[in-house]
Design a protein around this nucleic acid. Structure first.
Length: 529
RNA sequence: GGGCCGUUAGCUCAGCUGGUAGAGCAACAGACUCUUAAUCUGUGGGUCAAAGGUUCGAACCCUUUACGGCUCACCA
């Protein structure tokens, strides 16, 4: 990648420029993201990760070196047992303990947190996101943050003042900027009773009555509350950029206080940031009940959208705009938008005015790719058509490719990935009108009237006589001739044909559909009348 | 109460660093003996929420107002 690319107006590039401008020249820039794995990581959380990834790419495209870190806040407290989990009674005994100690009741991972972490970590490379993971439980339990915690204790009064500025009720005088997991029972139901001015913190546990003084350099149990933890880590890792959800970006919100703490306590200017909006879900009602607490994860999205198209939705939308990920008919449109963007990319205009529009689309296309930008276009095929083909060939992609005939070798993998998504969509989300399956060749004939029998017979004859020698348009006249010769309305004729073929009154546009099914199969299906 | 975001064609929105208002859908007209929101061609359509300001020039920058949404103030 080169430094001399034209100025881009894509938001990722604008933010990259901003980072360089505000943080000055650096050997490398640190971009951070992170969430708590205290539940299934959902697609809304993914927006943060992908947003950082896009900015990271923009920085790298400018020739900068970037460290992309992803912090798992797995030393968070287990506050509530999720409704949709088994073994509720067992899980209840872990309340107030760090989530990294809660067992994985759904699988065989080390812990509840680890299970959630693993699910996402395995999937992120699929969409081209490869951060360096930081596990906060491990860092805290290893006392890596001992100095940061000590610094917070030393600036206890400053921090209290900063937090009080945006609180309705002031923190008490005996407040300490730390929280402690009891050494005996692992719960955070503790009260800090003193600090020796150095590394010693005393506490009593309200659950088990334990009372002791621990050394920050040795204890696994002391951590910082969120609003202090965040700026401490900015300083610890030297974070230059980290976006956050709208819940953080408000006066008095956590980014606001963290900014102050970062500067005054840790001597680190807050990172460049932006606010990203929420993601909503469309077209999944009925399938997944929201009342069960089930959330839509990246894995769910990837069932229906290819990695490129998934990236495309995020790269093509400004972060502070709310948008919906659809599972209904909008899926067709999203794929069409992506294909249009791709065609644009491969058809660079030669006049300046068109070039300006082209550059924006081209940038979105580049950022949508999982790895490097392909040298050739994908096989352009609408999901609508692809799903018809798949249904005729019972989901067998190889036969679809064989039928299409003109798929180039370097397009096969991408087409297969798209077909897998299309097939999932047809099976799980497509409206009933959209789905069909061809009747088996040995199925018993449907019940038809005398004139309908004649119609099907005559259609078979037309197919036998003309299908091979006509193009679709020409052949269509022969099909209409059937209705005309028997003096039945086409509105009555079509449903019979569909019933004989797929057992429904409606189906894909008939002429094209007949060609896809092919002469041999048609004659077998219609031959029994 | 504070903050953030939004208000552009009938609908959904683009328009990102000030330079002749755009797309998709809808509508309308035409074509096709044609049902997966069917396809193709063409047309019409906006006081850019309102008012004021800066500027040679404002949808875009500033101020105020109205309406809508979100968010913070307990925890993360």
């Amino acid at each position: 990648m080169s430094n001399d690319r034209p100025t881009s107006t894509h938001w990722a590039d604008i933010n990259a420029d901003k980072i360089i401008r505000e943080k000055g020249p650096k050997e490398h820039y640190t971009c951070a993201s992170g969430i708590t794995p205290s539940g299934t990581v959902h697609i809304g959380n993914f927006r943060e990760i992908i947003s950082v990834d896009l900015v990271v790419r923009a920085l790298r495209d400018k020739g900068e070196k970037v460290r992309f870190i992803y912090s798992w806040d797995d030393y968070d407290v287990f506050r509530k047992v999720p409704r949709n989990m088994p073994q509720q009674e067992l899980l209840e005994t872990y309340l107030r303990k760090p989530i990294t100690l809660v067992p994985d009741v759904l699988g065989d991972s080390e812990s509840y947190a680890a299970a959630n972490e693993k699910n996402l970590e395995e999937l992120l490379p699929v969409v081209g996101v490869k951060p360096e993971y930081i596990y906060q439980a491990a860092k805290y339990r290893n006392s890596d943050y001992a100095e940061g915690i000590k610094t917070a204790l030393e600036h206890r009064d400053v921090i209290r003042r900063q937090l009080n500025e945006s609180r309705t009720s002031d923190l008490p005088d005996d407040w300490y900027p730390v929280s402690v997991f009891c050494n005996k029972c692992d719960r955070d139901t503790t009260k800090v009773t003193g600090w020796d001015g150095d590394y010693g913190v005393s506490y009593t546990c309200e659950s088990c009555g334990n009372e002791e003084t621990v050394d920050l350099r040795k204890t696994p149990g002391v951590k910082l509350p969120w609003r202090i933890d965040w700026p401490m880590r900015w300083a610890y890792e030297g974070v230059d950029f980290e976006p956050a959800g709208k819940d953080h970006h408000s006066e008095g919100g956590s980014f606001d206080t963290a900014r102050k703490t970062s500067k005054e306590v840790y001597g680190h200017e807050a990172p460049v940031t932006f606010q990203y909006d929420f993601i909503s879900i469309k077209g999944r009602g009925g399938k997944i009940s929201s009342s069960t607490g089930e959330v839509i994860s990246l894995a769910d999205v990837l069932e229906v959208y290819t990695p490129e198209v998934t990236r495309f939705m995020f790269a093509g939308t400004r972060p502070n705009t709310e948008f919906a990920i659809s599972f209904d008919l909008d899926v067709l449109k999203i794929y069409e938008d992506y294909d249009k963007c791709e065609r644009t990319y491969f058809n660079k205009p030669d006049n300046d005015k068109a070039l300006k529009k082209w550059e924006k689309q081209a940038r979105i296309y580049e950022l949508s790719q999982v790895d490097e930008v392909p040298e050739t276009m994908s096989y352009q095929i609408q999901i609508r058509y692809l799903s018809t083909l798949l249904q005729i060939f019972s989901g067998n992609v190889d036969r679809v490719i064989e039928f299409l005939g003109d798929v180039k070798p370097d397009q096969v993998d991408r087409l297969k990935a798209r077909a897998a998504c299309a097939w999932n969509w047809v099976k799980n989300f497509a409206p009933d009108d959209f789905t069909f399956s061809l009747r088996a060749e040995d199925a018993s004939p449907i019940e038809v009237s005398e004139v309908e029998t004649k119609a099907l017979k005559l259609l078979a004859e037309k197919i036998e006589a003309h299908m091979d020698s006509c193009d679709e348009k020409e052949f269509s006249t022969h099909v209409y001739d059937v209705a005309r010769e028997l003096e039945i309305e086409s509105g009555d004729f079509f449903p019979v044909v569909y019933r004989a073929l797929i057992g429904k009154d409606k189906g894909p546009r008939l002429i094209n559909f007949l060609y896809i099914i092919g002469k041999d199969k048609l004659l077998k299906l219609l031959g029994k009348y």
